[in-house]
């Protein structure tokens, strides 16, 4: 018979990372998404410079917020010391070519050197893809937080970054049908990977508080963050009225930011404590696993 847990130390909400760390995932995801889509826009012959500059701004904002989070900001350069295994170091390393090539691409475009600009943009986009992947792996390597270490979160972080970027791209390229189509497609994919993430997490077991927070978020995220902007995009394409696409882009990006904020600051309960056996004292018997505060005891 499974034991009933009467009381015990439940998994608690992590306090190591707060809204400042969440801003890094928000800025980094949106910024890299924008830069990747800027390359796609460039290859398609569309204007890409505003998207690149906005993307760099977002990534820079995220990294600046991290600087405010760390306890010893004057030692920030030590972040580069462990590329062998640390995804945080790798993220930092990739930020260098991202900004270097990004700024160079913008300067070249401004000077009219289109070939060099495209080359710079390509390097920045590859770095941005790596940067975004590092962000996803940073969470996966956080083995003390079950909702972060879940491998199904990795595709969500990747797709959400692209979707947030596509949302702002729809704002930058207001009225361009291709931007609306890209956003619409990414919204569908993001809804799918979010659903997969939640289902997988629940199936494998997680702190009950985590599942409760995600359970409350999901209906709003899907309705407001996906169905509503998708509807707006369809209307924008049908009616050919750009403000609808702009609104859809802002809502799609904003809801992605909201989801990341919740993931980092509220749906981030720790592993907690567990014992697979209780001790036998005297003539007593041992009970099987006790895992306070988890969805599956």
């Amino acid at each position: 018979m499974r034991p009933t847990v009467v009381s015990g130390p439940w998994p608690r909400l992590q306090r190591a990372w707060d809204i400042r760390a969440a801003c890094n995932f928000i800025g980094g995801g949106t910024g890299t998404g924008l830069i990747l889509l800027a390359l796609a826009a460039a290859l398609g012959g569309a204007d890409w410079l505003p998207a690149l500059l906005l993307g760099l701004l977002f990534v820079g904002f995220g990294l600046t917020m991290v600087l405010f989070e760390i306890g010893r900001p004057w030692r920030a350069l030590n972040v580069f010391l462990h590329p062998q295994t640390s995804w945080m170091t790798r993220e930092g390393v990739l930020a260098l070519p991202l900004f270097g090539a990004g700024v160079a691409a913008a300067a070249a475009e401004w000077l009219g050197w289109h070939g060099a600009a495209l080359a710079g943009l390509s390097v920045a986009a590859v770095s941005a893809a790596g940067f975004l992947y590092c962000q996803a792996r940073i969470l996966r390597a956080a083995r003390g937080i079950p909702s972060w270490r879940e491998p199904a979160l990795t595709p969500y972080i990747l797709v959400s970054g692209l979707t947030e970027g596509a949302g702002l791209l729809a704002v930058v390229h207001a009225g361009a049908p291709w931007a609306s189509v890209v956003l619409l497609a990414l919204l569908l994919v993001r809804a799918g990977v979010w659903h997969h993430y939640r289902e997988t997490l629940a199936r494998r077991g997680a702190p009950a508080a985590t599942l409760e927070v995600l359970g409350r978020l999901t209906p709003r995220l899907l309705a407001v963050g996906h169905a509503a902007p998708a509807g707006l995009l369809v209307a924008a394409l049908t009616l050919q009225w750009p403000p609808l696409a702009v609104a859809a882009g802002l809502v799609a990006a904003g809801c992605g930011w909201r989801a990341k904020l919740v993931l980092i600051t509220r749906a981030a309960q720790t592993q907690g404590f567990a014992i697979p056996r209780t001790p036998i004292r005297g003539r007593g018997t041992s009970r099987t696993a006790a895992k306070p505060g988890w969805s599956s005891q």
Binding site: A21, R72, G144, G272
Partner: peptide, 22 residues
Amino acid sequence: DICIGCGYCMTACPYEARYKVD
């Protein structure tokens, strides 16, 4: 003397063993 206080190790530890005070 090297730690930057990023708190990443605190989220990586499954035993809630790490702390940071400001």
